[in-house]
């Protein structure tokens, strides 16, 4: 496709060949970027996806995992749809590595988006972000059970703040309603930090933010976690507030909310039609990134679960995840079609 190679690559060719001969897996040579790669970030600067992409960028730079430079462009308009539309419109282009979450395949489900989920192909999922139920630090509830009981007393009155509408947060709140037979009121805000401020200010009763979004405020005791939507408790770490750490938070299932797992994958995509060699190249690259100490540090610090998925495993995960969420969409009547 790109038959015209820049001069510098010609000069580097022998060098690349030499190194390729040294590496055991010859597959990495099959495709190599020969011009800057654009990291399309489907969130605004400073968002969770942005930190994800920039961390990957910094690790690639630090360990010199790629010869070509990286350009990060933030396209967070329309809850991230802007970025996906942008990549989808450059079919076959292996230079648009797109960073997102599961909203790549969820957005087209709820809204009439100008792109389809198959317009991009998955490259890898690198980490799973956890969800928790958070309440104000001064709230009376000592456990999730008490919180749900209180909600049952006042059906439809307790307010959950969340990021965006008909997105991961609201889906989870609907699942909690379904699992416990309660009713909440969901108030959509523009991003997790606003949902946080509203909770810290006592204007809403709870939110379901990711650990990273609320860590600093938990430290200060402004808010506190009740339970986490993961199959088992989070790994023990340093205490965050009053001797309690992430590992001390009970799972929501143990608190009587029958949702075994609800997580958000941090995903990387390429436009559909980009060659298989290119996909393999980026898979290898991201795999290497996920094995660095810096990546482990990022995952620990943001309290995510490191889990590298690619190929069929990833496709299977996406199918499962999509069908779980789609069920909620259909129940709530959000599906676009």
């Amino acid at each position: 496709m790109y038959t015209l190679k820049p001069l510098c690559t010609h000069q580097l060719r022998p060098l690349a060949l030499f190194f390729a001969a040294l590496t055991v897996s010859g597959s990495a040579l099959a495709w190599q970027p020969d011009r800057p790669v654009e990291f399309v970030v489907t969130s605004g600067a400073g968002g969770g996806t942005d930190t994800f992409a920039r961390t990957v960028q910094s690790i690639i730079g630090k360990h010199q995992l790629m010869d070509e430079s990286i350009i990060v462009s933030n396209k967070g308009g329309g809850s991230g749809a802007e970025g996906y539309v942008y990549s989808a419109s450059s079919k076959d282009d292996p230079y648009k590595l797109t960073f997102g979450t599961n909203n790549e395949y969820l957005l087209p489900e709820v809204g009439d988006m100008p792109y389809a989920a198959d317009d991009l192909q998955p490259v890898a999922a690198m980490a799973m972000d956890e969800f928790l139920i958070w309440v104000n630090g001064d709230a009376d509830y000592a456990s999730a059970k008490e919180f749900i009981d209180a909600a049952k007393q006042n059906p439809g009155k307790m307010q959950f703040a969340g990021s965006q509408s008909k997105d991961t947060d609201q889906t989870l709140v609907s699942m909690i309603e379904e699992a416990t037979g309660t009713e909440f009121r969901y108030v959509p805000f523009n991003g997790g930090s606003q949902a946080l401020v509203q909770l810290a200010g006592g204007h809403v009763d709870a939110n379901v933010n990711n650990p990273n979004e609320n860590l600093g405020q938990w430290q200060a005791g402004m808010i506190k976690p009740l339970c986490v939507f993961s199959p088992e408790q989070l790994p023990k770490g340093e205490p965050v507030h009053e001797g309690k750490g992430w590992g001390d938070i009970p799972t929501c299932q143990s608190q009587g909310i029958d949702i075994a797992e609800y997580r958000m994958p941090r995903t990387v995509w390429l436009p559909a039609g980009a060659s298989e060699e290119a996909v393999t190249y980026y898979q290898d690259l991201l795999k290497k990134v996920s094995e660095t100490p810096e990546w482990k540090d990022y995952v620990t610090r943001t309290v995510q679960t490191s889990q590298f998925l690619s190929g069929d495993e990833l496709k299977q995960y996406i199918d499962d995840n999509a069908s779980t969420v789609k069920k909620v969409f259909e129940q709530e009547g959000w599906s676009a079609s």
Binding site: S79, A81, G111, D112, P114, S165, Q170, P188
Partner: peptide, 12 residues
């Protein structure tokens, strides 16, 4: 563009 309260697009 995106209407963040309803989660849908409008006037596009």
């Amino acid at each position: 563009g995106m209407d963040s309260v309803s989660g849908g697009l409008r006037l596009t």
